[in-house]
Design a protein around this nucleic acid. Structure first.
Lengths: 191, 191
DNA sequence: CCGCGATGAGACATCGATGTCTCACATGAG
DNA sequence: CTCATGTGAGACATCGATGTCTCATCGCGG
């Protein structure tokens, strides 16, 4: 069976190529197809056999990012317990994908026409947590769920970049993002 | 005097070109030099007479952004009164430059080697406010001033993009940024 | 051993953006 | 009026990245 031989002889794992591409493009968003190939340990020709072009590669990375986010959302069990705790779990689960997310976040700002189709479901699921927190009296209602969702993406990306630049310790990632998003910079009143 | 004639005959104002370039690149970061020229109402040749190349243009925009930020910091009187109020004034004063800042913020993430020279002084001035707030017991101390500074940039850029995408009302810009940065999503205890 | 299929290396054309140049035109100073 | 200067329009070469192609090689199954 051709499928059998394909599976067995394919020396390079498509998913593995995708991972290394994500790792490289996270650090250098403008990396060349040739650099991506070398980073994956394959030739440019083989890379092009897996992904028709740069657009296809980026779209594949987008799918990967969306999938990892969906998985993180699932693991975070957003509907359980207090919304604040749900958010903490979400950021903790999403941290491993933060670099990839930051790359895709920056990439999306380059496209005038919002190609947001793959992200719509994700946005909705996240915004739902904020809505739940607001309705339960846990979150303030003067910050719209849409903005809170956007701010979450922004803080994750910012912290990922700051981490890569050495301005934030990797071990503090979750704490910095979640505590700022939930509690803000002000000290809580010692009531 | 050649200087006289230069000043009087120069139909296009260099600063005006810079402004329109900022406005365009804020919306479409990948805009062509030709598009930038047309947006400024001049030809590509004239644009190139003012700025040696795209790099020079971007660097000029960076200088403009830094200058506007410095001016905003001055107007905000960061050393006066409670640090929280200083932050509110800062975001309010910086809002007009938010689009340009967002463009430059995204642009900086594309360059592997941090060309942070122009921003260092700015970062320091902003971080100083957070330090002051922490020392005065106004801000929590588990979020580093460096991260808070980075988060401020990130939230400003995120809100600028969200505003452009129609996900946040322009009139809410300052409130959304400053309230999230200072207070976070959680409701304050009704102590 | 033979042959198939995947790979690597490289040549090649293409394409978009950029930088440079020339030339004609318009406007204001003298 | 005449000339100088800034400008617009366009041609032109260049450069980097990309997409496509060919060919030799290697590894494994038959």
């Amino acid at each position: 069976m051709s499928h059998m031989s394909y599976t067995r002889l394919m020396a390079v794992d498509r998913d593995q190529v995708l991972r290394s591409a994500a790792a490289l493009l996270t650090r250098r968003p403008t990396a060349t197809m040739d650099e991506v190939a070398r980073a994956a340990g394959i030739s440019r020709a083989t890379l092009h056999r897996h992904f028709a072009g740069r657009d296809a590669l980026v779209r594949a990375l987008e799918s990967l990012g969306v999938a990892e986010c969906e998985a993180a959302l699932d693991r975070a069990r957003l509907d359980d317990g207090p919304a604040g705790d749900a958010l903490r779990r979400l950021v903790r689960e999403i941290e491993p994908a933060a670099g990839l997310l930051a790359f895709l976040y920056g990439e999306n700002q380059l496209w005038e026409d919002g190609g947001d189709e793959p992200w719509a479901r994700l946005d909705t699921r996240i915004a739902t947590v904020f809505v739940r927190g607001q309705q339960g009296g846990e979150f303030r209602i003067d910050l719209s769920p849409v903005w809170l969702t956007e701010a979450l993406y922004g803080l994750v990306a910012s912290c990922a970049w700051a981490t890569q630049a050495g301005r934030v310790a990797p071990k503090d990632f979750t704490h910095m993002v979640v505590e700022l998003l939930l509690g803000g910079a002000l000290r809580r009143e010692e009531a």
